[in-house]
């Protein structure tokens, strides 16, 4: 579904990514792990179009998207969340989620100014859809009118997932969805991620430090260290890999 081949990215002398190659298979959850500074977020930014790689390519459903801007990639069906929550803080939960539908809605400026007619029809149909598919699904109906700033961290993370879901993405990229969460919140989030995969068949790419979560829900794992891809495989394979153990625990005793 989403494939990255021989991706190189550098900032001045720092080589952030060196020859990353993997594929996120349709309908599966692929995990990207690695110690801090390994290049996980750089990889995400390259995939979503914020960074232009020096070499290599990103392909989506067989199409080369390396040269596209972030908004064009979103239109194709790539959604993502951010490590440090990038919601629109001046808006309510509902408006944030509605923004996820931007590329799928068609109202133009003239229709918007008039509102009554096509714009209203589309807005109401969309509202009904997100109420069911997103708000009900993520169990956030009690806070739909709340401003983002009034919500606790865990709920903000869930709203950000909701905003991504409103895009009806084909690929969903989650950058540390459970960072800073307690055990209960983590379990909730894990359940929602699995529900998304099951219900909508979405291909998911996940960056996460919580090893238990990654090992539990991912079917395929890519391990990065200092910008290099040091291992790839099923959770069982990766956790037995010597190089991975060394990167995480230091040299084997």
């Amino acid at each position: 579904m989403l494939s990255v081949s021989d991706l190189h990215l550098s900032f001045g002398g720092i080589k952030a990514l060196q020859g990353i190659t993997f594929e996120a298979k349709p309908g599966e959850i692929t995990g990207v792990i690695g110690p801090n500074g390994a290049g996980k977020t750089s990889l995400f930014n390259a995939i979503s179009g914020f960074y232009t790689p020096d070499r290599g390519r990103v392909a989506f459903a067989g199409r080369d998207i390396t040269g596209l801007t972030p908004d064009k990639r979103a239109e194709l069906g790539i959604a993502r969340t951010f490590q440090n929550i990038a919601l629109f803080r001046g808006m309510t939960v509902l408006d944030n989620i509605k923004l996820g539908g931007h590329t799928r809605l068609k109202t133009n400026v003239w229709q918007a100014l008039a509102y009554f007619g096509p714009a209203r029809r589309e807005e109401l149909a969309f509202r009904a859809e997100i109420e069911e598919r997103v708000i009900d699904f993520l169990e956030i109906d009690h806070i739909r009118k709340a401003p983002i700033t009034a919500l606790p961290y865990g709920l903000q993370k869930r709203v950000e997932l909701g905003r991504a879901l409103a895009m009806r993405p084909k690929v969903l990229m989650l950058d540390e969805p459970v960072a800073g969460m307690n055990r209960e919140e983590t379990a909730d989030m894990a359940r929602f991620i699995l529900d998304v995969q099951e219900e909508f068949g979405t291909t998911i790419l996940l960056v996460e430090h919580d090893m238990a979560l990654v090992m539990d829900i991912c079917s395929h794992i890519v391990v990065l260290n200092f910008g290099q891809q040091i291992a790839e495989g099923t959770p069982a394979e990766v956790s037995r890999d010597d190089e991975v153990i060394e990167a995480y625990l230091g040299a084997a005793a």
Binding site: D71, K72, A74, M167
Partner: peptide, 10 residues
């Protein structure tokens, strides 16, 4: 509110 986030919304 957040321009890069707007881009990611398409």
């Amino acid at each position: 509110d957040r321009d890069y986030s707007a881009e990611i919304m398409g």
